[in-house]
Amino acid sequence: MLICALVSGLVPLTVIKGAGSEFIPLPAGQNATVADFHSIRTNTKDTPSYFTSGFYKIEAGPSRPAHYDFEETKYILQGQIDILDEATGITHHLVPGDFAFFHVGTKVQFSTKSSGFAFYAVTRPVKAAHPNLQGREEVTK
């Protein structure tokens, strides 16, 4: 089947198996981390860019500032992630099912009173390829 797809000009999808929160420990002395697990240089004709996806994990502790020079989306999967939007002064309390979009120029502070886990997609190359998520691409024959 794969050979037929390649011959016809179609490109097969990439599937990452078993990429869950249990595989993403926090670095020593830190209460938050990103875990990039897939990145490509896009083939978009109008404006080629990077497209990277991964997970964001945060535990109670100091707030984590972020100033965006790329676009990002976050979709909350577990817990709660609080985001202080410095442009408005509003703190958003995001829970599973909530979605946030960060524009270029957005400045925020992430925090939580317990823990939070989110999926993200960004328009930047990999910053920190997470070793526990490498090699989890599904093998097709």
Rank of each mutant, 00 (worst) to 15 (best):
M1E: 15
M1S: 15
L2P: 02
A5L: 13
S8P: 06
S8V: 09
G9S: 03
G9Y: 05
L10D: 12
L10M: 14
P12T: 09
T14M: 08
V15A: 07
V15M: 08
G18W: 01
G18V: 02
E22L: 09
A28R: 08
Q30P: 05
N31I: 00
A32R: 03
A32C: 04
V34P: 02
A35S: 09
A35D: 07
D36E: 07
D36Q: 04
F37Y: 13
S39T: 15
K45N: 09
D46Y: 09
P48T: 03
S49C: 12
F51N: 08
F51V: 08
S53Y: 13
S53N: 14
S53W: 11
F55I: 06
Y56D: 03
Y56G: 09
K57G: 02
K57S: 04
E59A: 08
A60Q: 12
P62L: 01
P62R: 06
R64N: 10
P65C: 04
P65T: 01
A66V: 07
D69H: 12
F70E: 04
T73R: 06
K74P: 01
K74L: 13
K74T: 09
I76A: 05
I76H: 06
L77M: 14
Q78P: 06
G79N: 00
Q80P: 06
I81A: 05
D82Y: 03
I83N: 06
L84E: 11
E86Y: 11
E86K: 15
T88H: 06
T88R: 05
T88Q: 03
G89A: 04
I90N: 06
H93G: 01
L94Q: 07
P96K: 02
G97D: 00
G97P: 06
F99H: 12
A100Q: 05
F102H: 08
H103N: 14
H103E: 14
T106V: 04
K107A: 14
K107H: 13
V108Q: 02
Q109R: 15
Q109C: 14
S114V: 11
S115A: 15
F117I: 09
F117K: 07
F119A: 12
Y120R: 09
R124F: 02
R124C: 07
P125Q: 09
A128D: 13
A128N: 15
A129Q: 12
H130K: 00
P131V: 04
P131K: 05
N132A: 14
N132G: 07
N132V: 04
Q134Y: 00
Q134K: 10
Q134T: 10
Q134D: 08
R136W: 03
R136L: 14
